[in-house]
């Protein structure tokens, strides 16, 4: 569960995120859209502890990210757009090391490592060093590493960077299954079709402010006002930014 209350982040005179409030219950798949520089990554960085909010608060699974960072972080998994991997470790070792960071017991960890490797179909190359991986392989290992400790919440920044169609399908199916099993998912993306396909609710941010926040069903109704395409809704709502 994610709760953002009046979240604001300023850099000097520039306001990157402006009074954003949001609540994502357990099991909800939330899509976060916005043009470049709208404040998506800043919001995610505040949620994951890489920025501190100028005002407002963030609670993840009941823990305040600023006041109880370790407890909050222990409950979520994070997949950045350009993941950092330890190059000299194999994919399997990296997943193990991530599990260790979350304090997992060895027996459970071994089981879970194999589970996520099977889930994301990494077996054939997971024992090679990550320095030899392609961007897509790195991304899939990052997913596996983020899932290994069975997080209650998953935060994803641009999940499809570098993924081939088959890998993208695997990732989408996995995420959908997790959301059905009660994991709340916060996904920032530029791929509108993916939002339409997977998300229960959609938020569109523009110039730091939330300009649209509604369910997928209502989004479809909204689309009907235009030419039936999400792209048109997106372009209309973020029009000012493009001009």
């Amino acid at each position: 569960m994610i709760e953002l209350h009046n979240l604001t982040k300023t850099f000097g005179p520039f306001t990157a995120v402006d009074d954003v409030s949001l609540s994502i219950p357990a099991g909800e798949f939330f899509g976060f859209l916005g043009p470049n520089g709208a404040g998506k990554t800043t919001t995610i960085k505040m949620m994951t502890g890489l920025f501190t909010p100028t005002a407002g608060s963030i609670r993840i699974n009941g823990f305040d990210v600023v006041k109880e960072p370790l407890k909050a972080k222990a409950t979520f998994g994070y997949i950045p757009d350009h993941p950092y991997l330890y190059d000299k470790l194999t994919g399997r070792e990296f997943i193990y090391s991530m599990g260790g960071l979350y304090g997992m017991r060895k027996e459970t960890l071994k089981e879970n490592v194999q589970r996520v490797i099977d889930l994301l179909e990494l077996e054939s190359w997971v024992d090679k060093k990550t320095e030899d991986y392609s961007q897509g392989m790195r991304q899939r290992v990052t997913f596996a590493a983020a899932f290994v400790h069975e997080p209650k919440t998953v935060i994803i920044d641009e999940p499809m960077v570098g993924l081939d169609p088959r890998s993208a399908r695997i990732v989408k199916d996995t995420l959908k299954r997790m959301s059905q099993n009660g994991v709340s998912i916060f996904m920032s993306t530029h791929i509108l079709e993916m939002v339409e396909e997977l998300c229960d609710r959609v938020g569109i941010i523009n110039k730091g402010r939330m300009v649209f926040l509604d369910t997928r069903e209502n989004l479809h109704r909204h689309k009907a006002k235009y030419d039936g395409k999400l792209e048109s809704v997106f372009l209309e709502l973020t029009k000012e930014a493009d001009e």
Partner: peptide, 9 residues
């Protein structure tokens, strides 16, 4: 940045 997103003090 990577470690800061994990529960490491």
């Amino acid at each position: 940045s990577f470690l800061l997103t994990a529960p490491v003090s």
